[in-house]
Design a protein around this nucleic acid. Sequence first.
DNA 1: CGATATTATCATAAAGATGTCATGAATATA
DNA 2: TATATTCATGACATCTTTATGATAATATCG
Lengths: 146, 146
Amino acid sequence: MLSGTAEYALRAVVCLARQPEQKPVRASDLASSIDVPRNYLGKILHDLVRAGILKSTRGKHGGFQLALPPAQLPLLQVVSLYDQIGEQRRCLLGRPECSDRDPCPVHSRWKACAEEVARFFRDTTVGDVLAGGRLGSGPVDLGPCG
Amino acid sequence: MLSGTAEYALRAVVCLARQPEQKPVRASDLASSIDVPRNYLGKILHDLVRAGILKSTRGKHGGFQLALPPAQLPLLQVVSLYDQIGEQRRCLLGRPECSDRDPCPVHSRWKACAEEVARFFRDTTVGDVLAGGRLGSGPVDLGPCG
DNA sequence: CGATATTATCATAAAGATGTCATGAATATA
DNA sequence: TATATTCATGACATCTTTATGATAATATCG
């Protein structure tokens, strides 16, 4: 359902959001914590910085932090950097035009499915994820995050 | 949501199901009708034959036909040749184990989404698609099918 | 049988996603 | 200022998906 990269990004963001301290987390610590290849994660983190989701600081004691409160960060904002969720849904049967006014036979049922998925990512924030607890063993230094 | 190949397969099956006559349809006719690359479609059709979804006949007047009644062919049977739908859903947050008994914060909501999608593909048959009509201009010889 | 039409199969290419590596740029600290 | 540490960036490697092309196998028909 999600590309691997989008899932990596989601894990990283959630893990950063779980850090109790406001200190930046290094890419390599994050990588080993959420079990994503170090160098590849570097690129993803950079994407997230450019998207305004993370802040980065360089040099000693540098690393990555969330750039905004978790409650204001829908999962869709992370995921949509890599996957198209919901926005423009292609016709399942390949019709060039498929709309409410000119629907294919499965249009309404498929639309309902796709919109439920889109709604999930749009309405669930990173804050919601944190509120649930039960994520793992906690902050990055103490073990796995995802 | 679906891989390109799975969508191609779906289009091909639906188009074949719409043929009024029981004559086989050539791969090349099908390809131009549903706008899928000729050679690639050949491979996909072959997959569908091996899966028991289509029958093929070689030589003059050969081609492909459905191997079973459309009403007995859930979309999932076609799509699952290429994509994993629902069956084993990974944890969105990357937790190695994520179940009803040991759920991550988004488990239940995400499960509901994923299961609705799975249900759609499991419960919708090619027959249902035909029943709806409105697919295009009809049989392969008369124009596009998808 | 011989010619033609069609699918079956295999080798390979092109493109995209994923992953690695080396080097540059910025920052903190001594 | 010098050095170590960290992110930033771009080149490259690998794997999967998508796509193409050539040849073999099989069926029809004169």
